[in-house]
Amino acid sequence: MAKQDNAVDLVGLLAAEKQDLAASWVREVQESLGRRVGAAELDRELRELYEALVEALRQGAQDVHAEQMSEVRALLTELSRNRARQGFSPSETAISVFALKTVLEPALRDGSADTVRAYLQLGRILDGLGLFTIETYTQTRDELITAQAEQLLELSTPVVRLWDGVIAVPLVGTLDSARTQVVMEKLLQALVDTGSEQAIIDITGVPAVDTQVAQHLLKTIVAARLMGAECTVSGISPQIAQTIVALGIEFDGIVTKASLADALKLALRRSGVDMVAHAGVQR
């Protein structure tokens, strides 16, 4: 029954001056977070958490992974996720838990050995909860970053129709292997969807390419040919030209043009469109 006694001690520590402690806890956290979380919301969050924690300890929970802690973990998960989404730092998030230790410190001043023991044990549990918070926080941030990367990928890879039977992808920014792959798959699918036999990959806005990216470009051009379409690469900067030669990448059989305009001219000629400039038109 030692365990049971212990639990009662912990509860005693927390529940004795319940309202008081919870209120100081809210104040402590409020100070560290500034005005970025609404007072009412914070009050509700922490009081719920407090109730759940007391209840879990009453039921004999020994650490953060205990079954009785499931409600506490659920509340903490929600709290950590919200903080992560609102852009708080990991410390600012974890402080919500650790502040409770600070709040409990006065109880030690005139406390017995039992109180100190209870405080230390509760401290260990709170440390565990703090780590749990940071873990959840990190997980949420990772999910956010992945989601944003995917959105960026979508945003940054438009396939545009320049003419009947001519499509182009203007690539802007640094190309990594994953992004190049996505763009290329999109380009090939667009060939089918629009029935285009000419495609232009414009890399005017690309500062540099590495071997892998250059290989992906090459593979795409070969794949397009297998499907019955022709690709032209335009806008190769002097730096990229030097890289391609220095890396020893075979660009044989690949048609390149200096500018998108030149590439479009070629694509139109290949699709049998003649461009005629009329004399007398003012420029």
Binding site: M184, K219, A223, R225, L226, M227, G228
Partner: peptide, 19 residues
């Protein structure tokens, strides 16, 4: 087409068309 290229087959002498 992507898979064939990755496999190492570029069908050099074969004419192709979209449809």
């Amino acid at each position: 087409a992507i898979t064939l290229v990755e496999l190492g087959l570029s069908l050099g002498g074969v004419s192709t068309a979209l449809d």
